[in-house]
Design a protein around this nucleic acid. Structure first.
Lengths: 125, 125
DNA sequence: TAAAACCGGACTAAAATAGTCCGGTTTTTC
DNA sequence: GAAAAACCGGACTATTTTAGTCCGGTTTTA
């Protein structure tokens, strides 16, 4: 998220991973891995070669926290069975209400855009 | 949560851990650990001795998902710095919006009671 | 052609979570 | 008063997830 914010503030050029890592005191290798992942999903664009780096071309309003979370964390599941198999599903009597709670969280994450996170002091209603 | 629901449906007596574990096919030892924890925090009452067990005496409307999560999972932090120390806090420019997002999630978890989870098919607005 | 970047996958380390074990105490029943 | 059924509590182990590292490779530009 920090990196995306940094990129959004330097849209005019390709920013090398090293620059961002140095700025926040993060491990370059680790940050690189995540940015690569975001590039795969076309959240950011990558440019190889000398003076290469990453660049954010998309509109912050079109990117939600949910989207980023889905890519970097594999989703926002509060319970395992949201992701797949659950051994006790047949006898589980709280599955449905849990699922509804999950959906409310997802809704919140979907409606919160990076624009909300980066530019406003207040997060969207 | 399943165990709490079970207890809420058998308020008239002390229910042994074994009974609940068998009902859902859970490990007794593991479930016991969590119920003990809930008892410590006075969510449920424990009764030792023959015919002992756990009992729910509190009103489901007075118990929120947030409360249970706090006890069993140690909270609902979506980011580490909600819990304590963060190395880059001084230069972190997304801390505040992250915190606001966290608060919205907490609000949702606080306002969702076990009553909502167990008795209604729909979770509270 | 060398330097600066990204690429990608394998690898290792650390932390969190899940799950087990066991000796102990309490209460009831016979 | 002894045995059985339960909870108590803490130590222990295993598993899974997450974090972080490494390195040889490719691409692009000066």
């Amino acid at each position: 998220m920090l990196a995306l914010q940094y990129l959004s503030r330097h849209r005019d050029r390709s920013v090398p991973v090293k620059e961002i890592a140095d700025c926040y005191g993060l491990s370059m290798e680790f940050l690189a891995k995540t940015l690569r992942l975001l590039a795969h999903h076309h959240i950011i664009d990558s440019q190889q070669g000398l003076h290469g780096g990453y660049r954010l071309t998309r509109d912050l309003q079109d990117l939600s926290v949910a989207t980023i979370l889905e890519i970097t964390e594999g989703g926002s599941a509060i319970i395992e069975c949201e992701n797949g198999y659950c051994a006790i599903a047949p006898v589980c009597t709280i599955r449905e209400p849990m699922h509804q709670l999950q959906q409310k969280i997802d809704q919140l994450l979907r409606q919160t855009t990076l624009q909300d996170m980066f530019n406003n002091s207040a997060v969207a209603e």
